[in-house]
């Protein structure tokens, strides 16, 4: 396997048991390859399944069919069929995922939230905290906020904490779901810089960028998602 991410014949549908058993087919026969140092932008209208692709790669969603091979350590792991422990290992070391919403334990300081990926890799407390503060600073979160819990932050600040927490660790694979959606111009540029730097060091990035300026600035390639066949 040469690609960092290789998706073959991915199918994903949702069955809503409590709403008359409606079955919504979102992806069917989706293929994608992403290489090292490449940033792929998923594009298409809202509800077409862009986020679903990211979530399937992260194994946040289960799949109906297909393989999602992610290069991990010296081999590759099929995220569609991996054991939960393998999935957690891949998430810990290989895949960084910036979701649209920040989800953290209430009352945990922003600095500790950001340091966690480093801590879980075995970094010492001081080193991880220092790196976390640096990354928060870089995303213009003032030092006064570092010891506060992000639940009290504004939407834009929360999103930056979310970014910091992923970019603090050098993940080889990054999944970015509208990472700049609620950022102002200045911070959007910081985010663009971080993404470009990650691609520059060889990360494979898959992202959803509504902002065309951001997309143009970071993406090497755009993949257009088109509507699936009608629900079966």
């Amino acid at each position: 396997m040469t690609a960092a991410i290789e998706i073959r014949d991915l199918a994903k549908s949702f069955t809503l048991h409590n709403q008359g058993g409606i079955r919504l087919s979102v992806l069917d026969g989706f293929d994608l390859e992403v290489h090292e140092g490449e940033c792929v932008a998923l594009h298409g209208p809202s509800g077409i399944g862009k986020s679903t692709v990211l979530r399937c790669i992260y194994a946040n969603y289960r799949t109906d069919r297909g393989r999602i091979l992610v290069r991990h350590r010296d081999g590759s792991v099929d995220m569609a069929s991996a054991h939960p422990r393998e999935v957690l290992a891949v998430r810990g070391e290989t895949i960084g995922y910036v979701s649209q919403f920040l989800r953290v334990v209430p009352r945990v300081a922003a600095e500790d939230v950001v340091a966690e990926p480093l801590r879980s890799r075995g970094a010492n407390r001081e080193g991880a905290a220092k790196a976390a503060r640096g990354m928060l600073q870089c995303l213009n979160i003032p030092a006064a906020l570092h010891r506060l819990a992000p639940a009290t932050f504004s939407g834009g600040e929360q999103q930056r904490v979310n970014l910091a927490r992923v970019f603090v660790a050098d993940y080889p694979v990054l999944l970015l779901d509208e990472p700049t959606a609620s950022l102002d111009r200045e911070n959007r540029e910081v985010a663009v810089g971080l993404i470009r730097a990650a691609v520059g060091r060889g990360a494979a990035v898959v992202g959803i960028f509504h902002d065309s300026q951001v997309r143009d600035a970071v993406a090497n390639r755009t993949v257009q998602l088109s509507a699936m066949r009608e629900a079966a």
Partner: peptide, 9 residues
């Protein structure tokens, strides 16, 4: 399954 998988999907 994985916690987030069960809760999100």
């Amino acid at each position: 399954g994985l916690t987030d998988q069960v809760l999100d999907d």
